[in-house]
């Protein structure tokens, strides 16, 4: 096998969950009391609990692969994406990525509600590092794909969720041509027709050699699109492999709590 484009070795990510649910983020008053009590030797260990968002996660992704990541809320999917995107560093382990990384997470990159659709496209493109020319060349194409031509001059704050998602997706897919595309739950909004259009576009990218890591709750998409699938459970890889099998396992697990509830 050729060298993988993404190689993840035993990564772990720890967050501290302390008071206020704001990990490590204390007010100055608390910090001062903390330091004082320490100096007086009356240091009471903080009730800060550790939370391992990811534990001992390893996998490889080959070039041109679509890999799905599924799991319940809080299983560590978004943390994994953030680590792959280089936004945050893992507490332990190593990630090796050979290529440029683009993200498609939630709403558009740096989109501003006061600016209109057109301006936001230019802005997002600029943030992704494109030249103004290149963006303007593709502007109409993006508006057409997102079906937002008639709202191009409306400030984004008046957009509906679906419109927002459509704009974000179109911008990312047209302007962002990274070798690795990380997608976190952006296909949730938008209607079926638009989703199909997105899939086609994504597959087009893959044919051109893009590698995709797709995080989603929609198991059907994973079955439909992915070559392989990772099922994350409580920060660990529960299973990895054929999408249909892995998705089946996930759905089976998801059934369990509800049956317990019914029995009770």
């Amino acid at each position: 096998m050729s060298t993988p484009i993404i190689s993840v070795e035993n990564i772990a990510k720890r967050y501290r969950t302390g008071e206020h649910h704001r990990p490590m983020c204390r007010s100055i008053k608390e910090e001062v009391t903390h330091i004082l009590s320490r100096c007086c030797g009356r240091h009471v260990p903080q009730p800060s609990r550790e939370f391992w968002a990811l534990r001992d996660v390893s996998f490889d992704v080959q070039k041109g692969e679509i890999i799905g990541v599924i799991g319940r809320n809080g299983a560590g999917k978004s943390t994994l994406i953030r680590i792959l995107a280089g936004v945050t560093r893992p507490t332990a382990g190593q990630v090796t990525i050979q290529g440029t990384v683009g993200t498609l997470i939630g709403t558009g990159l740096g989109m501003h509600p006061e600016l209109n659709g057109r301006e936001n496209i230019v802005l997002s493109g600029g943030i992704m590092g494109l030249q103004k020319r290149e963006i303007e060349d593709r502007l109409e194409e993006i508006l057409a794909f997102s079906e937002l031509e008639s709202f191009a001059d409306t400030p984004v704050k008046y957009y509906s969720n679906g419109m927002h998602a459509r704009l974000s997706f179109s911008v990312s897919i047209y302007l962002n041509r990274p070798e690795i595309l990380l997608i976190d739950e952006v296909l949730a909004a938008g209607d079926i027709a638009f989703k199909q259009k997105c899939f086609t576009k994504l597959l087009e990218c893959v044919n051109e050699g893009t590698t995709i890591v797709l995080v989603t709750h929609a198991v059907d998409y994973v079955r439909q699109l992915a070559d392989r699938c990772i099922y994350l459970k409580n920060g660990e890889i529960n299973c990895i492999g054929d999408p249909a099998t892995v998705a089946g396992k996930y759905l089976q697990d998801a059934q369990k709590p509800s049956t317990i509830l019914q029995n009770a």
């Binding site: 995107a85 936004v87 993200t103 997470i105 939630g106 990159l109 740096g110 943030i127």
Partner: peptide
């Protein structure tokens, strides 16, 4: 203010 952007891109 820019945390959204900071959380999405390196």
């Amino acid at each position: 203010t820019a945390r959204q952007l900071l959380h999405r891109m390196s």
